[in-house]
């Protein structure tokens, strides 16, 4: 059933997102054409420069809107499909609550990744520039950046997509399943926003606390640290010291991200199962 739900969620969201990708592709293509014209004609005027700049700006704007829009759209889709009128259909399907939740999470994550890939491709096209990644990496390695740093940074960036969606989803689940004893009905969207703010603050406090504890345990002091000293060192030695610190901070970040995501997802599914209130 998860597969069927996933197919349905991907198909439903595809209509708008594919249209957005098309618009981004078109604006990037137009920007590329004007850049080519500008670069290949020696008698290109000042007007051509302005037009080329404008089309590049339009493409950049379209890319930014598309990436932010993907996140907003997937969150609104979750709300519409599970807690508005469509919820009457979805919650009466013979499927489990966790399947409804994870189908939306997987679809949202896949579209977020796809949007970022489209954004990177569109930027390369719009500015007619493909960065030489192998060269950038080899330069960084020569400067003392360890290999694991690239892999772990990429992993954290990839993990941050579902984590971000989970934070929004859990806020909506709490906002829409909250029970109050007041006579007037509560605004569930407002409750969702409040849930998000509380959740965000709690998460920041936990993260800072964990890093503080780690720093005190490993360095002894957060003001007179090896990390601060190492900044004054030169070259590879400084890099080794700094990245040694990063290893610990990254490990804490990954553990916290996984722990919070699993915990919040379990909580969301439990609320949907035991406290659903489509009234």
């Amino acid at each position: 059933m998860l597969g069927k739900l996933l197919k349905y969620d991907l198909k439903r969201q595809a209509k708008l997102l594919l249209a957005a990708y098309l618009v981004v592709g078109l604006t990037a293509g137009i920007s590329a054409i004007f850049r080519l014209v500008n670069a290949n004609f020696e008698d290109a005027t000042g007007v051509m420069n302005i037009v080329s700049g404008l089309t590049s700006g339009m493409a950049t704007l379209a890319i930014v809107v598309m990436v932010a829009g993907t996140l907003i759209y997937t969150v609104l889709y979750f709300r519409k499909n599970l807690f508005k009128d469509e919820g009457y259909l979805m919650h009466t399907l013979p499927v489990k609550s966790w399947q409804l939740y994870f189908s939306k999470l997987i679809a949202g994550t896949l579209y977020s990744y796809l949007s970022i890939l489209v954004a990177i491709a569109a930027l390369c096209l719009a500015f007619l520039h493909i960065p030489n990644l192998p060269e950038i990496i080899s330069q960084a390695l020569a400067a003392g950046v360890p290999e694991w740093f690239f892999a772990v940074t990429l992993f954290i960036l990839a993990l941050s997509m579902p984590v971000c969606l989970i934070q929004f989803y859990v806020s909506l689940v709490f906002g829409y399943t909250v029970r109050t004893n007041t006579k007037t009905p509560v605004n569930k969207d407002l409750m969702s926003v409040i849930s998000y703010i509380v959740l965000y603050m709690a998460q920041q406090i936990i993260s800072l606390g964990a890093i503080l504890i780690w720093a005190l345990a490993n360095i002894g002091s957060i003001t007179d640290s090896d990390l601060l000293d190492s900044v004054e060192m030169a070259g590879t030695q400084a890099a080794t010291e700094v990245f040694g610190m990063f290893k610990g901070i990254y490990a804490i970040t990954i553990v916290l991200m996984v722990f919070l995501s699993v915990g919040l997802s379990v909580l969301s599914v439990w609320r949907m199962k035991k406290h659903l209130d489509l009234s």
Partner: peptide, 9 residues
């Protein structure tokens, strides 16, 4: 009815 179909707990 909502309780019977699982929309309300």
């Amino acid at each position: 009815i909502k309780m019977l179909c699982g929309l309300l707990v």
